[in-house]
Simulated assay, not measured.
Amino acid sequence: MAYSKQTNRTIVRFVNGKEHVVEDMVATEIPITVKINGEEVVTMISSPDHIEDMVVGYLVSEGFIVSVDKIMHLRYEAASGFVHVTLKQALNPFHHQLQTKRYLTSCCGMSRQSFIFAADAKTTKTMKTRNVFLSPTECMTLMNELQAGATTFKETGGVHNAALATPSGIVLMRTDIGRHNALDKLYGYCLRHQLSLEDKVIIFSGRLSSEIVLKVAKIGCEVILSKSAPTNRALEIAEELEITTVGFIRHQSMNVYTVPERINRSSG
């Protein structure tokens, strides 16, 4: 069964108090259940595209597997919504406990005490390298490119957009109703196609929450650009993990919140 990323629906729209019956487009969402070695491990609500990439990105970033070569077989059944994953090894029976266990920690190089999930501590990377440098103009150009390519968002207003880019332009873009899903789709594609992340930037349409910054750290990118706002905890984590965060990129203005040395302030 093939699904479209948007669905047509007849609605009643009021404009200046007047009623109009019109056709509108809404974002499509479907449940995706992942089975590993025959065992159900998670059900995600997702947009109906790039499902295999999303699952691979999720499994690696959440620590179910350490690399994509641990997967022997992956099969997506669109009709049932199941993704069947066969691993070369047995699934760690304690991994689910790590997924849900919180603890006060200084792991991931974090000197500030903060509640995080144990699985996050296992897979998060500290970005000590300085391989990516951007000018303010490049940041704004990349954000404009993301928004120009956000077709499903323009049609429905109900999805998040994420892209992988170099300073010269977008390399890969993904859309999903779930913020995490969009990033997992990027990461899964890179893992499956051996696309290097060393010189890449994440561009994101939504708010920079702590979970999004942690996901970027798991993917292994030094810089994240957003048109929206960060949270204080997201910035604390970004600072500790040495990730450059840039927010509110709009109308020729932007805010650099953490690790500003990756932004070349001497150029336009």
Rank of each mutant, 00 (worst) to 15 (best):
M1F: 07
A2P: 12
K5R: 12
T7Q: 11
T10H: 09
F14H: 04
G17W: 00
V21P: 00
M25E: 15
T28G: 13
P31S: 05
P31D: 04
V34P: 09
I36A: 09
I36T: 12
N37W: 02
G38C: 11
E40W: 06
P48W: 13
I51E: 11
E52Q: 11
D53C: 01
D53I: 00
D53V: 04
E62D: 12
G63C: 06
G63L: 06
F64V: 14
V68E: 13
I71K: 04
I71M: 03
M72S: 13
L74M: 10
S80A: 11
F82N: 13
V83I: 08
V83G: 09
V85S: 14
T86H: 09
A90L: 10
L91P: 06
N92W: 02
P93D: 13
H96M: 14
H96W: 10
Q99N: 05
R102V: 13
L104Q: 07
G109L: 03
Q113S: 12
Q113V: 07
I116N: 08
A118E: 13
M127H: 08
M127A: 13
M127Q: 13
K128G: 09
N131F: 06
V132K: 02
P136L: 01
P136N: 10
P136F: 05
T137K: 11
T137V: 00
E138S: 11
M140A: 08
E145F: 02
E145H: 08
E145D: 15
Q147A: 10
A148L: 02
T151I: 12
T152I: 13
F153N: 12
E155S: 05
G157N: 09
G158I: 02
N161R: 05
A162E: 01
A162C: 04
A162K: 04
A165N: 07
V171T: 06
L172Y: 09
L172A: 09
L172Q: 10
M173S: 15
M173R: 14
M173D: 00
T175E: 05
T175C: 09
T175A: 01
D176N: 07
R179T: 09
H180T: 05
N181P: 01
A182E: 05
D184M: 01
G188R: 09
H193T: 13
L195I: 15
K200S: 12
V201N: 03
V201K: 01
V201S: 01
I202F: 00
I203Q: 07
I203K: 07
F204E: 04
F204H: 11
S205D: 09
S205L: 03
R207E: 12
L208D: 03
S209M: 08
S210M: 12
V213D: 04
V213R: 01
L214F: 11
K215F: 02
V216Q: 04
A217D: 02
G220S: 10
E222R: 07
S226M: 06
K227Q: 14
S228I: 01
N232E: 15
R233M: 08
R233C: 03
L235A: 11
E236N: 12
I237M: 05
I237R: 02
A238I: 02
E240L: 03
E242Q: 15
E242G: 00
I243C: 05
T245W: 00
G247T: 14
R250Y: 13
Q252K: 15
Q252M: 02
M254Q: 10
Y257M: 14
E261W: 00
E261S: 14
S266N: 10
S266P: 01
